[in-house]
């Protein structure tokens, strides 16, 4: 069970949230300049690290806002939560982030 610190509502139970996939994925463009290979990388390829994963969560049973989470996929430990528009936080060294 996760205790997730919503940037607006504070620490809340995992039940109130929905996971929304990897974050900081930039859509390539303009569309006419993007070939099938690049478009497929954007649509399908993911970092899937065994370590710190930067991901989106939605506080559905609270403020109903999206935000970003830095979470370790090996331990489920949450290292940071931050606004959708914020850049990724600096992570401690020694974590493998392929």
């Amino acid at each position: 069970m996760l205790l997730i610190e919503c940037p607006w509502c504070g620490p809340r139970d995992e039940h109130e949230f929905r996971y929304g996939g990897e974050t900081h994925i930039a859509r390539p463009g303009p569309p006419e300049a993007v070939d099938d290979a690049e478009w497929s990388r954007y649509l399908f390829e993911r970092g899937n690290p065994r370590g710190i994963h930067l991901e989106r969560w939605h506080h559905g049973f609270g403020c109903q806002r999206w935000f970003n989470v830095a979470r370790d996929t090996r331990s489920h430990r949450i290292d940071a939560t931050y606004a959708m528009t914020d850049p990724p936080p600096a992570m401690p060294d020694g974590e493998d982030t392929p």
Binding site: M1, N48, E55, T73, R74, H76
Partner: peptide
């Protein structure tokens, strides 16, 4: 959510 922990939640 993604996990490598080999334990469920």
């Amino acid at each position: 959510y993604p996990s490598f922990a080999q334990r469920g939640n």
